[in-house]
Amino acid sequence: MRLDKSRESQNKSERIIPLGTLGHLVIFLWCLVLVLYSTFENMFWISGLCILVLTILYPGAWKSVINARRLILLGLIAIPPIFFLGAVDKIFLGVPYSSLGFISSIQIILRFLVVMMALEGMTSSVEISAMAGILERFGLKGLGFSMGVAVNLLPSLQKSCTQSWLILKMRGGLRKSWWKGIKLFSLTTITCAIKRAEEIALAAESRAFSPDKTRPWPIERSPFDWVVFSSACLSILLIIL
């Protein structure tokens, strides 16, 4: 989800094919379905295809996927199977390893890369409100409005929580009767939040806002969306069947 303007403009300028919200969502789901259904025989070319498509659509996605934190996480997930999964039947440079575990590790690495790139690409191209707009169309009416309220409330509620915590700390913190302290902190935080909610609801109603009369949040459309959707469905059918 677009977090800042610089990232937004950077992504827009980097993008070769301008897709709408549905197009981005289809690409994400397409990658997910393909990697989930891939077997060891077709894993390499399926992952290669996904990475190629993702690199064309989101040229900057790999930069945020390949970072130290994620690589450490990937190492923690992918390295142990090489030595512990299945029988240790091969030796490479004097280090014994399991061929079954090695295959499993490659599968893990490729899936990880595809899933992370697809997720990064989608979240950097689609706004949170657009996601809410899609969900609204699936029956969650008013989600777009609620998301707007939530995003605007986030900094002020965060500040209010911090202030309540600091006040509690100044009055002795959780050293003595910690349970009472936590209870008081929760009560204060939620009461403040609800009071704020009442003000927002009143302001929205005074502007004649009604969830029944509002149109769902508009979602970005592109002529390429249907092309992407049809191609994705066709390729999934071809690969799975």
Partner: peptide
């Protein structure tokens, strides 16, 4: 409207 705002508040608290 009030329900939606209250749900947004609780969602925000969980999010925070």
């Amino acid at each position: 409207t009030k329900n939606l705002v209250i749900l947004a508040v609780f969602g925000t608290l969980w999010g925070i």
